[in-house]
Design a protein around this nucleic acid. Structure first.
Lengths: 156, 156
DNA sequence: CTTTGTGCAAAGATTTTGCATTGCG
DNA sequence: CGCAATGCAAAATCTTTGCACAAAG
């Protein structure tokens, strides 16, 4: 628990330094948004963020949330990872790269990383003389729980 | 050329039959939209479609284009494949499955298919007891031409 | 003739932006 | 103090929808 708080402070401090190094300002709003993002399990949607912040009676406007996220994206603290049903899902980029299994029924996101897939991708890029920057691999389908549930319903 | 027109008619006819089989109506608008989609090189954006149709003086409203695309998606004639910069890119699903290299500079889309990646994906799904439906693999970066061009500019 | 489709305009949803004001550094 | 950030509301995008009318089957 204490450990966690130390981590949190360390990350916020790092964020502060990087923001300032870029000639930007470290405002209470940016701090708050960053804290809220760290509290998520790694993935979040903007509207959830806005909602969570509003709920706690903290004054950060939607515009600021959007603007801050764009800055964080540029600074590499978050990534736009998934677009599904016209919603953008962001991801906190504190871990190493991974891809996603997305349940189209319950919305659950499972992360995975398969080095061999990354290698094959590089091979393909070479073949097409393509210079990759980043990629997204999203597998949509049903998680085990939803699959079982839907199979049960079908039987009835 | 003649061959191509035969193909076209055959595909339109198939579309007509499937639409009717579903109890839906085969209207001139739906025919027109389908024809325009077939004319693309496999990928298109809704607004381009609307624009192309409008330009030819054909009367199909934006609402009808959106509604028709949703139907075509359900019927499997098109797929939503890429979300980039808040734009949805559709793909005509007449070819076998493939993935995409997307140039973030010029927007060019290169298609590829790598069976080994598909196999690895299946392996991963099994590991997580996930039941895949479809997937998207998008590699963003620079195509060879843009890479060369941007390198040249940087030097100056 | 019934039911579905269309066009239009309005409404929704998501994201960006202009401008006056605030506040960090 | 100067410049960047904020909040607000308006606007810009993209997409869906209600309703009256048209047309397919």
């Amino acid at each position: 628990m204490e450990n966690k708080n130390l981590d949190l402070e360390k990350q916020i401090s790092e964020f502060k330094n990087i923001v300032r190094k870029k000639g930007l300002k470290f405002t209470p709003q940016r701090k708050k948004i960053f804290e809220e993002i760290l509290k998520t399990e790694g993935h979040f949607q903007i509207e959830d963020l806005v909602h969570n912040i509003k709920e706690k009676g903290i004054n950060v406007s939607r515009a600021t949330v959007y603007r801050t996220l764009n800055i964080m994206k540029e600074l590499g603290f978050v990534e736009e990872v998934i677009k599904f049903k016209n919603k953008t899902i962001y991801e906190v980029s504190l871990k190493h790269h991974h891809d996603h299994l997305i349940c189209t029924n319950c919305g659950k996101i499972i992360e995975f990383h398969e080095e061999k897939i990354e290698e094959l991708q590089n091979k393909i890029c070479k073949k097409y003389k393509f210079h990759p920057d980043f990629h997204r691999l999203e597998i949509f389908g049903l998680c085990h729980e939803c699959y079982k549930e839907l199979k049960k319903k079908k039987r009835k």
